[in-house]
Design a protein around this nucleic acid. Structure first.
Lengths: 256, 256
DNA sequence: CAGAAATTGCCACAAAATGCCACATCGGAT
DNA sequence: ATCCGATGTGGCATTTTGTGGCAATTTCTG
């Protein structure tokens, strides 16, 4: 009898962690049919790799300090602002654009504040609230169930609404870029939704700040074949850069 | 055997704190199913980390528990807050409710912050953003074109989405109440949309603060025959009160 | 304004859950 | 056959949580 691999058990743990932000030893032991001691050893191993933080009774993600949207905004703010400004330079008067949710696209929204005669579609509450106060910007909110972490709408309603639109530009964020240069996302649903956003756009830009490089999130992202540009604040590591080149994704460097 | 993680409990507290500015020990203890002493110990731990300020009976964020900027800027804030609290008393655990856009419904949203296990549908960006930060509240945003004045979604998309829902309670604002006791609205579209919201609700409440009395806005509002209640902060003028009585609309007086 | 009633804070101790370590067991690899 | 790594088991220390009593504070009431 081959027992389930320790690796796959640890993968399961990481997924559960990503999904809910915290996992308990007891629950995992029960769920995975192993002893609590084994789970504890797994957690220790993951903690050594920096993939989990051990707390009493289990493990949590993101240290004791929560990475809320506000916190994520603060992280690498200058890099994100630079990406935002660069991305904004592609938006011309009269255009209709999609802005994905996330702190990087929020930075883009700030850069679009003074524009006139543009139309923005977004599923992000903060972006919609910000841009609707700008007289020159028309905002359409994509409805759906609100994910508290992203403060943005996801779900069937959102997907259904998206199908109706055809826009000039789509600006999409990513959860991470795997060491192999593959964009990844946090959930199947989010990935699916971003994919449809991409398909709605004539041109698609991915916004990737350097903290995303070599960060692997659980789901492989669905990507459209043609990407108009991948806007970054720092050059990606060699291996990732080569992967991008192989796919003919132009890397656009924003400078602070 | 299986204890929920202390850290996720503390996360919950911080989120509730971020959302509403203040939390009470008793409420949290009940919500989270632990003893008050445990909550107190959590608060102490959070206070040590500077993530909460302990006050008698609970904890507050920032210097004092203050209503948000938007709520304070609103005219007749105290009356609206009273209406909000009164309206909230009709919302029970497990219910699905619609919140219309507007400053009075925003006051209701504040009153719903600490609730658990309720689902809110709204077209208002500030309400969605506020409530999605509250751990016990599930929020669905109704998408559509954003009206910058209301910071809320209106339009065909919103109407179409609304058709799919059937909810327990609908809380609707009005533009004004004409001297003849007729609810009025600002635009045909808004009126139509509110009408559909009403039809989606099993019970419909109108929220009317006294500044609306004898204010006439351009469009006659479409109203469903049965109104479960008209929640006010002051008794309406005689003529309006008689009109309400004639329609069998119960007037519910909120007290500050 | 004073006193009563209710709520809350605090402390100490007990109970429960968890962490940790040493050692036993099992299966596969050398 | 033996070694080695992974896992389970049991005992004990540590941490967390619950409980009850009592003081302090707030709120109600006349």
């Amino acid at each position: 009898m081959n027992r389930p691999l320790a690796i796959s058990r640890q993968d399961h743990i990481v997924k559960a962690l990503d999904a809910s932000g915290a996992v308990s030893v007891s629950l995992l032991a029960e769920r995975l049919g192993v002893s609590r001691e084994t789970i504890r050893r797994d957690l220790k191993a993951l903690a050594d790799q920096g993939r989990a933080n051990i707390v009493h009774g289990g493990a949590a993600r993101g240290a004791t300090a929560e990475p809320s949207l506000a916190a994520r905004q603060a992280a690498n703010a200058s890099g994100k602002a630079a990406i935002g400004r660069k991305a904004a330079s592609f938006v011309e008067e009269g255009m209709v654009v999609i802005l994905d949710s996330g702190s990087t696209t929020l930075a883009l929204a700030y850069a679009l504040l003074e524009r006139k005669d543009i139309t923005v579609l977004t599923n992000s509450l903060p972006i919609a609230l910000l841009l609707c106060r700008s007289p020159g910007v028309k905002v359409t909110m994509l409805g759906g169930e609100i994910d508290p972490n992203d403060e943005a709408a996801f779900g069937l309603d959102t997907l259904a609404t998206l199908e109706h639109f055809r826009v000039d530009l789509a600006f999409i964020g990513v959860g991470g870029i795997s060491p192999e240069g593959e964009p990844t996302d946090y959930s199947r649903l989010a990935s699916e939704q971003r994919h449809i956003m991409m398909k709605a756009g004539q041109k698609v830009f991915l916004l990737v700040d350097h903290s995303k490089f070599e960060r692997r999130t659980p789901v492989k992202m669905l990507v459209v074949p043609r990407i108009a540009g991948l806007i970054v604040d720092k050059p990606p590591p060699k291996r990732i850069a080569q992967a991008f080149m192989g796919r003919r994704w132009p890397v656009i460097q924003a400078r602070a």
